[in-house]
Nucleic acid binder design. Structure first.
Lengths: 132, 132
DNA sequence: TACAAAATGCAACTTCGTTGCATTTGAAAA
DNA sequence: TTTTCAAATGCAACGAAGTTGCATTTTGTA
């Protein structure tokens, strides 16, 4: 398990209190967190916009991945890359009642999935919806 | 291929000009359409809110299914149910550049996917992201 | 310490979607 | 055909999510 500082260093991102706090929360979470979740729970106070930008930066860097919940709000989760897995593919369980999003590790069986002609596959997202 | 009138009758929904127009567009489309797409293209003029409500009604009835694009805007597509397919599962190709969403018919290989204990699977959505 | 680039804060704005209430319309009964 | 009522529509106002531009502060380096 990596520490916030190491992750920032590894991606040549400046170390700030907010960034460390955000990473800490997301490393500890077993599920995707929304902007709102984070702004509630962070002990570090910050501007709404800054938090949005922080999340973007992490997403661009590939540290986090974004998942849309059924209501269209973005949730972010730390991108683990278990061995043998396609870097850019994810499987999630989405609860239709509480809207929580859990990351799963079952992408294996999807490797061979083929796309129609004229399309170029980049990333695969599987959402299993149901109730937790 | 069903006609708008038949679909409405089948679901015991009142026949209105807007509903027929929306169904017509979506039956003809080979991809998911957003609220904005529809309000631009419909020859029938209508209130913003009414269109939102129309889409909800169709979604509740199971006539349409909603897909979130990566920016968090909802797109709607007519729900075809090819034989042998799980009614509530869908596969889509999402273009990361133009944001268009195309329905695919390759759900077959996902049937056996199992979810961790404590979860109840209801629906399976596969999004293949890439460029078209 | 001094400096430049990057990060933050603030204000204003846009888009998507919702809610409450008044009005109109579809379709079934008289 | 006319009457009737629930359901559909329109309108106004609101709320949440996310963005943009610009001024200020902070980080990391020289």
């Amino acid at each position: 398990m990596s520490r916030p500082e190491d992750i920032l260093q590894q991606h040549r991102l400046k170390h700030t209190r907010l960034r460390k706090a955000v990473l800490e929360k997301l490393l500890a979470a077993d599920k995707g967190l929304s902007h709102q979740d984070l702004s509630k729970d962070l002990e570090v106070s910050c501007n709404r916009v800054t938090l949005f930008r922080t999340l973007h930066v992490f997403e661009e860097a590939g540290i986090l991945h974004k998942i849309m919940d059924p209501d269209g709000t973005s949730k972010y989760a730390y991108s683990t890359h278990p061995e043998g897995s396609d870097t850019h593919s994810h499987a999630h369980f989405v609860c239709l009642y509480c809207k929580e999003i859990f990351c799963l590790n079952e992408v294996a069986l999807l490797k061979g999935l083929k796309v129609p002609k004229g399309f170029e596959k980049v990333q695969l997202d599987v959402q299993i919806k149901g109730y937790c």
